[in-house]
């Protein structure tokens, strides 16, 4: 097996890294590039904690070979809210959306993608968009409430729950 050098644009910065052909994107992000927000919850695409944006689309970074991402643009949680928290992140805080927080990076990216593609999602569309991101703590309600709130342009100040 021969090492390959790949180039990735990660959170706006260009990085090159030597990888094995069998290296999976999440290993490269976490172990070679020190980007720790994508988590390993199952390592087989079931749980969504490793979700990142690759060329604007959410992918399970445990199911993508690093070489497949060569030349691509990757956004992780580290690249969200770099100029202050986004309205989505503020809504997550206002709604007490997370408990242990292990799912939060993946959920944040899934919701970010949704709101970019669909500024006014219905509640069912929100559920569908995060259905691949398991959460065992919250019952999803405060996550969905926050995404719904962040999508409401007329309602800028996030209303506290109930």
């Amino acid at each position: 097996m021969t090492k390959t050098t790949i180039t990735l644009k990660i959170n706006g910065a260009t990085r090159t890294v030597d990888v094995e052909p069998s290296d999976v994107l999440i290993e490269v992000l976490r172990d070679k590039l020190g980007i720790k927000s994508p988590k390993i919850g199952c390592d087989r695409g079931d749980c969504g904690t490793c979700t990142v944006l690759l060329n604007g689309q959410t992918v399970r970074s445990c199911l993508v070979l690093a070489v497949e991402a060569d030349g691509g643009e990757i956004v992780t949680l580290e690249g969200i809210g770099t100029d202050g928290l986004t309205p989505l992140q503020k809504a997550f805080i206002a709604h007490n959306s997370f408990q242990c927080g292990f799912c939060a990076p993946g959920v944040t990216l899934a919701a970010t993608e949704l709101l970019r593609k669909n500024a006014q999602p219905t509640r069912d569309e929100i559920k569908e968009a995060i259905a691949g991101n398991l959460c065992r703590c919250t019952g999803y309600t405060p996550i969905i409430d926050a995404i719904e709130d962040a999508a409401k342009p007329a309602n800028k100040k996030t209303k506290a729950k109930k």
Binding site: D46, I130, L134, Y140, I144
Partner: peptide
């Protein structure tokens, strides 16, 4: 022993709580 065969609720399984 996987989340594909041990089924925990997703956001789509969530009723009104």
């Amino acid at each position: 022993p996987h989340f594909s065969t041990y089924i925990i609720p997703t956001a789509c399984d969530m009723p009104e709580l």
